Simulated assay, not measured.
Amino acid sequence: MTIAISKDSRQQAITSIERYFREHMDEPIGNVAAGGLLGFFLEEIGPLVYNRAVADVQERLQARVMEVDVEVHEPEFVYWRKLDKKR
């Protein structure tokens, strides 16, 4: 599965990679090389991050589903109890 990003996000990511190289590496990286590096990361590491995010969402949704019975539970057979309280 290829992780796709918008054209604008791609350009921002390339700009960020170029800046990172300027500030932290001995040599700067060009626009084409930064784009290639971004493509590599999206293809090689992107699925790892994506799968972790999906697992996190599943975990959170399962926790919410487990709480549904508490949130929407209605007591049963309450008619007579309500009537007895009024008397």
Rank of each mutant, 00 (worst) to 15 (best):
Y20N: 04
D69M: 09
I17F: 05
R87D: 09
T15L: 10
K82A: 13
Q62P: 09
P75G: 09
E18Y: 08
R64I: 14
R81Y: 06
L38D: 01
R87G: 14
I14P: 01
V57M: 07
D26F: 06
L83R: 15
D8G: 12
P75N: 06
I14G: 06
E27K: 12
L61V: 12
K86W: 11
E76H: 01
V57F: 13
H73R: 06
H73A: 14
E44W: 10
E74M: 15
E74C: 15
K86T: 10
K82Q: 11
R60C: 00
F40K: 13
K7F: 08
S16G: 01
I17Q: 04
E27S: 12
R52S: 09
D26M: 06
I29Q: 09
V65S: 08
R81I: 00
E67I: 10
Q12P: 08
Q12C: 12
H73Y: 10
A34S: 03
G30C: 00
E44F: 07
V32P: 03
R19S: 10
A55M: 07
Y79C: 02
V49Q: 08
G46F: 05
A55C: 03
L38C: 02
A63W: 01
H24D: 07
Y50F: 15
R10Q: 04
P28K: 07
V70K: 13
K86H: 07
I29S: 06
L42F: 11
G36A: 00
E71W: 14
S9K: 11
Q58M: 13
Q62Y: 13
E27A: 06
A13G: 04
R64W: 12
R52H: 04
E74F: 15
V32L: 14
P75S: 09
L61R: 08
L42P: 02
T15E: 12
E76P: 00
R60S: 14
A63V: 11
F21P: 01
V68W: 08
K85A: 10
G30V: 09
A55R: 05
L48N: 03
V70Y: 13
V78G: 02
M1S: 09
V49N: 02
N31T: 05
Q62D: 15
S9E: 13
G46Y: 05
G30Q: 07
E71I: 14
H24L: 03
I3L: 06
S6W: 04
G39Y: 08
Q58E: 15
Y20M: 01
A13V: 04
K7N: 12
E23I: 04
Y20L: 02
M1L: 05
